[in-house]
């Protein structure tokens, strides 16, 4: 089950967040911003200070009640998927979201890079992907 999607730009700012399931605690937009900023910082630390050199940074954060999958693109954009602990193959889904992002956000002339994403086509395509994934899992 996919719970939510967050997209963080390369400066650590939250540019997109959507909840997909009803059972989530309602966080304020400020709390989401804090969460995104914190994750960004921790990600930077885990990629710099690592026992084994050349680390890609944190990819999975796991708790009893949820998991956060993180996929960072070469340009530094991070896609965070908050899922059920039992969710398989969430990394595949993050890559699919990346594809949608490349298509419907970056190829949209009305979008300013690094700014919050408010694009209907992207929204509807993400919803479609999530519905498919949740139905299959």
């Amino acid at each position: 089950m996919l719970h939510a999607l967050l997209i963080i730009n390369k400066a650590g700012g939250l540019i997109y967040n959507r909840d997909f399931t009803d059972g989530l605690a309602k966080l304020t937009s400020n709390e989401y911003l804090v969460m995104a900023g914190t994750f960004h910082g921790v990600h930077a630390i885990t990629s710099r200070i690592s026992p084994v050199p050349g680390s890609s940074g944190m990819e999975l954060l796991e708790t009893d009640t949820f998991k956060i999958f993180c996929f960072q693109t070469l340009t530094g954009v991070k896609f965070l998927l908050i899922t059920d602990p039992s969710q398989p193959n969430a990394d595949v889904t993050t890559r699919k979201v990346y594809e949608l992002y490349a298509d419907f956000v970056m190829k949209n002339p009305f979008y300013n890079p690094e700014m919050p994403i408010r694009i209907d086509l992207f929204d509807s395509n993400v919803q479609k992907l999530v519905r498919q994934t949740n139905a299959a899992g």
Binding site: D103, F104, K107, N108, P109, F110, R118, I119, D120, L121, F122
Partner: peptide, 9 residues
Amino acid sequence: KFIAVPKDM
């Protein structure tokens, strides 16, 4: 195909 025109336009 990839273009969503913003509401104000």
